[in-house]
Write a protein that binds this DNA or RNA. Structure first.
Lengths: 122, 122
DNA sequence: CAGCTCAAATTACAAGCGTAGTCCGATGAA
DNA sequence: TTCATCGGACTACGCTTGTAATTTGAGCTG
């Protein structure tokens, strides 16, 4: 039930806008990836088989809709990374980026604001 | 030159302690994964072929040493995730976790401290 | 020296994946 | 009605990955 890297391009398209026809997916994906049309079609079919998306015939054409939720997917992927590399926690990741000076001033500002709001919320 | 999920277990072992003999790697990895010894050996060899680790014969036995740097690997993986799912930026990731209430009070505190220090540093 | 033992290297093999071409059936045009 | 077209389904194929067994080679043992 795993969505592969390549397949995730199709999901991204559907997450941006739903539903889409096969053509629209192809167009969206091909704007980003140098794949043949047939390749995108294959990916769509694999996702159908995996029940990650579904299709319904709407007057002649197929419309595709995601069945897996983006937030969910993102959560799983992210947590997976944290688990593999950062003992499951977010702070060490942030620390890593901080240490490696991979944070632009603007990002720091955003983070700061975020954290502050968090505090309020909680 | 890609390190797969399974292979990364061997890397983790070597990053924890270097150098290690094949036996030691096997022991370390098998403490975490239910893999046959042969499997771990295979992974070691694939990493050798990929030049992700090297071995040197030290009186009869082979000693294995990582050639790729952990910080580097972590950086690449993390950035990859950010690129794929968060427009390459850290703040959206943190925001995602925040929104999904995946942050424990303690983690928030840690983040807060981190960000504060960052500010100082910078 | 002949065999045994253990580590290292080689080989195996199915499933998944990236990448894509081909086939088939419905729909519209002539 | 026949033919061309087009979208969707099916087939293809080599590479990678997970998982592991088998073979080889070097040193130890008798």
């Amino acid at each position: 039930m795993n969505i592969t890297e390549a397949e995730s391009q199709i999901m991204q398209a559907l997450w941006r806008k739903t539903p889409l026809t096969a053509d629209e997916i192809v167009a969206d994906v091909r704007a980003r990836q140098p794949w043949a049309e047939a390749t995108v079609k294959t990916l769509i079919n694999r996702l159908l088989k995996k029940k990650a998306i579904k299709s319904e015939r709407v007057d002649g054409r197929h419309q595709y809709v995601p069945l897996v939720d983006r937030a969910n997917y993102v959560q799983d992927e992210s947590q997976g990374l944290l688990d593999r590399l950062f003992e499951g926690q977010l702070a060490p990741l942030v620390a890593h980026f901080a240490q490696n000076r991979k944070l632009k001033r603007e990002e720091i500002a955003r983070l700061k604001k975020l954290i502050a709001e968090l505090d309020d919320d909680d």
